[in-house]
């Protein structure tokens, strides 16, 4: 069976203002109904295929996002939802913000907008599905992400 027919997603809230999060959750509810694509929101990274990240990365959650990414089994796809997750968005200059999610983990698809409409997020998920399928066919594995340089907290 095709993996892309029932992708399970894990939703990670990094540094977001909640605007994107509630739109991601709204995608899963009856009106937008992401479940018609077989999408299921799951709480644990070990069972997920697609990682939906909202919000930018800051010095404290950089470890959390790295750990979650490393725990997702291959093949895996990362979808960055919102301007914040893509580039840092309106907060890109704040002192505690490192930047978009792609500063830390490899991102496969971006959904721009502040905040993006649920239709756009669904589009992003559907785009992620074909990437997922390709990764499976080509047996492309995600690299284990290690933190380097100055974003590693010394007590980590």
């Amino acid at each position: 069976m095709s993996l892309a027919k029932s992708p399970w997603i894990i939703h990670v809230n990094c540094n977001s203002c909640n605007g994107c999060d509630i739109e991601v959750v709204a995608c899963l509810t009856p009106l937008y109904d992401a479940e018609r694509f077989g999408v299921l929101n799951i709480g644990t990274p070990k069972q997920a295929d697609i990682m939906v990240v909202t919000g930018s990365v800051n010095y404290k959650n950089v470890n959390v996002i790295k750990n979650i990414y490393n725990q997702i089994p291959d093949p895996k796809v990362v979808l960055a939802v919102g301007a914040c997750a893509s580039t840092g968005g309106i907060f890109h200059n704040c002192y505690n913000v490192i930047g978009g999610v792609d500063q830390v983990i490899p991102v496969d698809a971006y959904v721009p907008g502040c905040c993006p409409r649920p239709e756009a997020i669904l589009d992003g998920v559907v785009a992620a599905l074909s990437i997922l399928e390709n990764k499976k066919k080509g047996n492309i594995k995600g690299k284990e992400v290690k933190l380097k340089g100055k974003e590693v907290p010394s007590n980590a």
């Binding site: 800051n58 010095y59 002192y95 505690n96 907290p153």
Partner: peptide
Amino acid sequence: LYLTPNSPKAP
């Protein structure tokens, strides 16, 4: 509370 040892100090 908010900051880790790596973040800017007393911003």
